[in-house]
């Protein structure tokens, strides 16, 4: 019965959905970083004249979706589903965005793995013939995440060197059954991996095992090697997680040293911008993918990319109760060719 699955975890799309438009909106700090030229909108004011950071985040996501629609030269009526999620409790940013967007809505919680989770589900909907076009989106905001997961903004605390900086921004991708590419050719949804890390300052360390598991499973299922990709990029493992992935993947027999990096490392200049281990948050892989990766693929500088957004699925309550951090990673292959 199952025709499109290969190996134990991967789906190969016979008719790969095409990406026909994307958008990326970021806050001022991200707009100061090394990828500033790739983003569609850089906000000068990260509240975007809203009265709370939560409202600002919802507005950023809403505008990102509208911008992706106009970048794809289609209208809202051409879309059938909105697949989105974010970091806040009960994914309020996405639901309040969906309130403004008149589309049937699937709300996801995958923490910072939401971008590839929504792309995976969106691709399955489109390729399965359940829709012609869907929009996949996610957002995060430094200040709304900080108050939910860490300390008040004006509290004078020092951040550990393993800690990461939540990216303010949103990214949206329009997937279509027809189009000129780039295409989503494979997806490898990941399993939860939890090696008992309880330190919420060390997300990279907590999520790295999930990334390693998903990446090696992807290679096993597809038969590809790291060399078959122009870029292998994880979502927000940061410097600590990247070191672990490089090291342990080598022990698994895969050498990633040539073409592997992490969105959290790309988006900020760690030294200049004092972001310690790098960026994080749903928007981290979302804006790097919808901004940098997509535009480089259109230019032909990148042709096949493996994007692995990584998520830490803990909550402030589980942390207080001393529970460890469950990590997840979903891999998506984006290819300029249909394979």
């Amino acid at each position: 019965m199952i025709k499109k699955r290969i190996g134990s975890q991967t789906i190969k799309f016979p008719n790969p959905p095409s990406i026909i438009g994307t958008s990326s909106i970021v806050g001022p700090k991200e707009g100061d970083g090394p990828l500033k030229d790739y983003f569609d909108i850089i906000l000068e004011d990260d509240t975007w004249a809203q009265e709370s950071f939560e409202k600002a985040e919802a507005k950023i996501q809403e505008e990102a979706i509208k911008l992706a629609i106009s970048n794809a030269n289609i209208s809202m009526n051409d879309l059938q589903y909105l697949v989105s999620g974010d970091l806040l409790n009960q994914i309020i940013s996405s639901s309040y965005t969906a309130r403004q967007i008149t589309l049937p809505y699937f709300g996801l919680y995958g923490a910072c793995s939401t971008m590839t989770e929504s792309l995976s589900i969106g691709s399955m909907i489109v390729e399965g013939g359940f829709a012609d076009k869907v929009v996949c989106a996610t957002s995060s905001h430094f200040s709304s995440a900080e108050r939910q997961f860490r300390f008040p903004l004006e509290y004078g605390s020092q951040r550990s060197f393993a800690s990461q900086w939540t990216v303010t921004g949103a990214g949206a991708t329009i997937l279509s059954a027809t189009g000129e590419g780039p295409y989503i050719t494979y997806i490898t949804p990941g399993k939860i991996k939890d090696f008992g890390i309880t330190d919420t300052n060390n997300m990279g360390g907590a999520m790295a095992p999930a990334a390693i598991d998903t990446i090696s499973q992807h290679f096993k299922d597809t038969g590809y090697n790291p060399d078959d990709y122009d870029l292998i990029i994880t979502g927000d493992l940061g410097l600590v997680g990247k070191r672990i992935v490089l090291d342990l993947m080598r022990k698994e027999g895969y050498d990633l040293s040539q073409n592997y990096t992490d969105c959290g490392i790309k988006i900020f200049d760690g030294v200049e911008q004092d972001t310690h281990a790098g960026g994080s948050g749903c928007a981290c892989s979302a804006v790097v993918f919808n901004g940098y990766i997509y535009k480089e693929m259109l230019k032909g500088n990148l042709n096949r990319v493996l994007l692995i957004s990584t998520g830490a699925l803990h909550s402030p309550i589980s942390t207080l109760q001393g529970e460890s951090i469950p990590g997840i990673a979903h891999a998506v292959t984006i290819d300029n060719l249909k394979d």
């Binding site: 806050g27 700090k29 950071f53 430094f142 200040s143 900080e146 008040p152 903004l153 004006e154 303010t168």
Partner: peptide
């Protein structure tokens, strides 16, 4: 009197 500001 005041609003918190995003850290720089």
């Amino acid at each position: 009197l005041s609003y918190p500001k995003t850290k720089k």
